[in-house]
């Protein structure tokens, strides 16, 4: 990591500089003012710092496809959330350029009382899409999700797989600068999973889209990503070509 990289503002680039994420795990959970003040006056406000990420640095160029591997609780999702701009790091800095399409827990931002049609507009707005763009591409979104018949049904009647279909379809209908995929593909039926993977590969191959990918399926990771970053218990273990990293990761497990 010693070599200096030339930084650009080009959409799709990610720069992670020495990021540390510390959660203060309170030994007790305070849910009310009273409890809090009682503990405070007794000097019983104890926190146990937990480092979810320790001094992580890497950069991703436009068009790269990078997988994150690591055992459960190693900080992969925390990293993705920091890059997605949802969490702010305790220390260090993250710079992300361009439009982000996050596929983190598909269906976030959907309202279960609204119909699928209404949800597509709501979710599109949250992703930053123009209204005219959604109007124009509504048909294609529905078509990709293969749910033409269910558009005016409230989402609460949908199965989780159907929700995932719509969410995936909205986020990938155009080329975002950065696509973040967090185990999103583990829902949905086999056919749709394959369709999703094909679509992601298509975006990867276009070289216009930077893809960050988290999956526990090492084989899938190798198929989709050219580069892999291994984060283990908050530490950066390895950063390199995906088959090399995947190999090392699989061997560690045994």
């Amino acid at each position: 990591m010693g070599n200096e990289i030339i930084r650009t503002n080009e959409p799709g680039t990610i720069y992670v500089d020495d990021v540390t994420m510390t959660f203060n795990i309170a030994k007790e959970q305070f849910n009310s003012l009273k409890e809090y003040f009682i503990a405070m006056t007794r000097h019983e406000l104890k926190f146990k710092p937990f480092h979810a990420l320790k001094n992580i640095s890497f950069s991703v160029e436009k068009g790269e496809s990078v997988g994150l591997v690591g055992t459960n609780g190693s900080g992969k999702s925390t990293m993705l959330k920091i890059i997605a701009g949802v969490l702010s790091p305790s220390e260090g800095k993250v710079t992300v350029n361009g439009n982000i399409a996050p596929l983190i827990e598909l269906g976030a931002g959907f309202d279960r009382e609204l119909t699928a049609r209404e949800n597509i507009y709501l979710n599109g707005a949250l992703l930053g899409y123009r209204k005219e763009f959604i109007d124009e591409n509504f048909g294609r979104i529905v078509e990709f999700a293969e749910l033409q018949k269910f558009m005016d049904m409230p989402l609460k009647n949908y199965s989780s797989g159907m929700v995932a279909r719509i969410a995936f379809s909205i986020a990938t209908i155009t080329e975002p600068d950065l696509l973040i995929v967090d185990e999103a593909l583990s829902v949905g039926d086999k056919f749709f999973r394959e369709k999703c993977e094909a679509r992601i590969s298509e975006l990867v191959n276009s070289k216009n889209v930077t893809v960050l990918f988290v999956s526990h399926n090492v084989e899938q990771m190798k198929r989709v990503c050219e580069r892999c970053i291994w984060i283990e218990k908050g530490d950066m273990r390895m950063d390199g070509p995906s088959d090399v990293v995947a190999e090392a990761y699989s061997n560690m497990k045994r």
């Binding site: 930053g128 123009r130 763009f133 124009e136 591409n137 209908i173 155009t174 600068d177």
Partner: peptide, 9 residues
């Protein structure tokens, strides 16, 4: 994919 420039606000 459609041209990206007119997709986002």
């Amino acid at each position: 994919t459609i041209s990206k420039s007119d997709a986002w606000y």
